[in-house]
Each structure stands twice: as C-alpha cells, then as structure tokens.
C-alpha cells in the first residue's frame, strides 16, 4: 500500500497512519517526496509512528526523501526509549515499605536521643547554646498564638456550657455544669485545643523552615562546621514548645472557664453557687494532668515537625509535603498520647 503524505502535522499524520494500520498491511510505504523540510517535531512524529506500527507487525519503509530531509533524519540522534524497571511484586513492596518505616524509626530515635543530649548540654551550661533562639521561638509560638488560643477556648467553654446546660436542665442538675466545664477544660479540652492550634500553626512552620534550610544547604553549612542541626535548630524549638504549651494551656483553661461562666451567669439565677461548686470541686490534680498532657503534646509536635522538616528531601514539592506531614503527624500523635495518658490517669484513680 502506498501512502502519500503532503503535510507534516503530527496529529493528522498519526491519525491518517492509524487508519491505514487498521487494514493490517504487511508493509507501509511512506512517500516523503513532497516533503521539503523537516524539523525535530517531524522526525519525532515519524519515529513514533514507525515504532508503533512495527510493534503491531507492520513493516515501515520511507521513500522519496530529498537529500536534505535524509540528512536531517540521519543526523537527528535516535536514543533508545527509557527502560522502566519492572514493577516490584507485592512482597517486595511490602518489604521495602517495612524497611523504610524501620529505618525512619531508627532515624527518629537517633534524633530524639541527640535532642535529649543537646537539651541536657544546654541546661548544664554549654556556651554555644543559643538561648536567644529560644526567646525568639517563644515569641513566635507563644505570644503570637496567645490571642487565638484564648479566643478558641473561650468559645469552646461557652458552647460546652450552653449545650450541657440545656440537657442538664431537664434533670435539674444544671448547678454542676460549670464544674463539668471547668474540670473538662483543665484536664483535657484546653491542652487539646492548644495542641491542635500548635499542630496546625507551629508544626508546619517549623517543618517548612527546616525543610527550606535543608534545601538551601544551610544545614550542610552547620554540619561541615561540626555543628549538629538537631542541637542547633531542634533543641531551641523543643525548649520553647515545652514552655509554651503548658502556659497556653493554663491560659486556655481560664479562658474556657470564663466562656462557661458567661453562659451560666446568663442562664442560671444561682450562678454564684455553681461557680463556688466548681472552685470547690476542681483540684490541683486537674491542672496537673492538663499540664503534663500539654508538655507531652508539645514534645510530640516539636519532634514530629522537626523530623519531617529535616528529612523532607530536596524537590520543589518537599516543603509543602513536609508542612502537611508535620501537621497530620502532630495531630495524630497528639490524639494517641491523649488517649494513652487519659486512660492511664483514669485507671490510676
């Protein structure tokens, strides 16, 4: 079969040849005699067509090309198409995933140990520790987050009191609602809401900053000076978050109680009695539990975000991925820690 091609337009050429290929000819001759000029797109199209037809058992012959066209065809490099490695089997994929998880876990353990050593070194007075960085981080993590943490917990206390009051009112036990809000905020809600705020605000910021430094080779500069990025960058952030989370948590507790009190004052003529009940029933233990939880939450958020930031890779997407992973991992681990601590505390009572 003879096919004459008058125009080298990749799409129309491909379409026309596919129509001819459907008739399953043994040989397809392409007459290039009308072709005066060919560029890389033309050569690529011809080669792609030829390769595709040959795969389906059709031999392709080129005829009538001018010397100029022949020269371009001959001089254009013809590399082999890339050979994709075979897809790994299920077992191999599983093995690789397990290995990656295991080595990630070991790296995380290394980082945690180094951070603890660094923190201990800083406390016993190593000159090179940058306390200035801790102050800077305190401002970023704490002072800047304070208004939103207070507002969120105030609104949570308000909503909690309102909804519980409506239910309790049916049973005539509305006098314990404020106590419930107060103890609930101190033991769990306030540390949790502060942790969620830090996980969504501070964790991505830490991860993005460390990831950017990794990509810009700033961390390599530290390493070649013999300075550990974990000690220099992660430890100040851990110190800061260890101070910030309990402080914010205590403020959030007070703010949440204020929100609850506002609703109680509005709905309950005997609000003073409810307030006194709350003060009587709340113990230092409630605040202690909240403080312990918030410190643990802070460490979890700090370590998760630092780990994702320092091991984010070098690609253009890595900063975004690191920030997202830091937020997700922080929230997940905060919930796990919360469940464990709450269960252990309740069982111990």
């Amino acid at each position: 079969m003879d096919v004459r091609l008058d125009a080298i337009r990749p799409r129309s050429l491909l379409h026309e040849l596919e129509i001819h290929a459907r008739t399953r000819p043994a040989v397809l001759r392409l007459d290039l005699s009308a072709l005066r000029q060919i560029d890389s797109t033309g050569v690529a199209t011809l080669r792609a067509v030829t390769r595709r037809l040959r795969r389906s058992g059709v031999a392709v012959e080129l005829h009538g090309a001018t010397p100029e066209v022949m020269r371009v065809l001959a001089e254009t490099p013809e590399p082999d198409p890339p050979k994709h490695p075979p897809e790994p089997g299920v077992l191999e994929s599983l093995g690789r995933s397990c290995f990656a998880w295991w080595s990630g876990l070991l790296t995380l353990a290394d980082m945690v140990i180094e951070a603890m050593q660094g923190a201990a070194g800083a406390v016993v007075g190593r000159r090179t520790f940058a306390w200035r960085d801790v102050v800077e981080q305190l401002e970023l993590m704490g002072a800047d987050a304070l208004p939103i943490a207070a507002t969120m917990s105030f609104l949570l206390g308000l909503v909690l009191d309102f909804q519980t009051w409506v239910q309790m009112h049916y049973y005539g036990t509305e006098s314990v609602v404020l106590e419930f809000v107060g103890i609930g905020m101190a033991r769990g809600f306030a540390p949790f809401i502060v942790a969620i705020l830090l996980a969504s605000r501070t964790a991505p910021a830490i991860a993005a900053q460390l990831s950017t430094m990794e990509m810009r080779q700033e961390n390599d500069v530290l390493r070649v000076m013999g300075i550990s990025p974990v000690r220099h960058l992660v430890v100040p952030r851990l110190f800061a978050i260890t101070l910030v989370t309990p402080a914010l948590s205590l403020i959030a507790t007070a703010s949440g109680i204020l929100g609850g009190l506002l609703v109680t004052v509005w709905l309950d003529p005997h609000w003073m009695a409810a307030f006194e009940t709350m003060l009587r029933e709340m113990t230092l233990g409630d605040l202690w539990l909240g403080t312990v939880k918030s410190v643990l939450f802070g460490w979890v958020i700090g370590l998760a975000s630092a780990f994702t930031g320092l091991h984010s890779g070098y690609g253009a997407l890595s900063i975004g991925i690191a920030a997202t992973r830091a937020a997700v991992a922080s929230i997940l681990f905060v919930m796990i820690v919360d469940s464990i601590v709450t269960t252990l505390w309740t069982m111990a009572q």
Partner: peptide, 9 residues
C-alpha cells in the same frame, strides 16, 4: 564554600 551560597537567610 557551597555552590549555592547557602547563607543563613
């Protein structure tokens, strides 16, 4: 001296 200057931004 790194290829990218790697100054602390």
């Amino acid at each position: 001296l790194f290829q990218s200057d790697a100054l602390f931004s």
